[in-house]
Amino acid sequence: MKKVFAWLLCLCALPALALDGLEILKKVDRNLEPESSESLRKLINVEPNGQKKEFVLYTVRKGRDQVVGLFLAPESDKGRATLRQGDNMWLYIPEVGKPMRITSMQSVTGGVFNNADILRIDYTAEYNVEALAEDRDQHLLTLKAKTGEVAYDKLKMWVDRKALLPVTIECYAASGMLIKTLHFKDVKDFGGGIRRPATIETDSPLYKGYKSVMIYGQIKKREFQDEVFTLNYLPRVGDLRK
């Protein structure tokens, strides 16, 4: 009788112990980036003939949906800055001298990554968890965009069960067409308790033979004032660098 009671207790406790889809996604968000952080990334676009074009981006983020990026290289793009506030995105070009609105599906760098990939905000800010399944040693999350403004209508995200970090993400349009696949690689300890994939590779059936790669060189926690994430501050983002 005692054994049966113990089993019943365990069964009741299991749902509480197991993470639900939203909790997994929240942990994925925090494991990928702290709530307030700065990072240095390199973006590489690889053409079918092997030719490469590289960009270096300093990025600052705060909260679930505020991101600012500043191009440090190449020289032709140096000083360009991008701002994202939820669904709103702007690009500042020093020669033009004022920010203009851009869209999530465009790409400030060309290649397979679009603006939504480069200025990514928390997955929980843009997606609801539609389903959670188990696939070998990984969770498989099916995510549905909260609004029509989100770049991808649906995501299939394979998450490492132990590390709670994404391994592969497939991005789909509302029509069901696969737009691109993101591969997360090279889990690295960046210090300050941040351990995440340093490399994200993407390919797309829409860009056959092309590949884009994002490499994190630095990422660290840092607090920022909200005023940093405004149009007026955008031309001065470089002053945040220490």
């Binding site: 390199k42 270096v56 300093y58 490399t199 490499i215 060189g217 220490k242």
Partner: peptide, 11 residues
């Protein structure tokens, strides 16, 4: 092929 030395971009 895909290395990144971020120290080259110190301010």
């Amino acid at each position: 092929e895909f290395s990144f030395d971020s120290s080259a971009f110190e301010k």
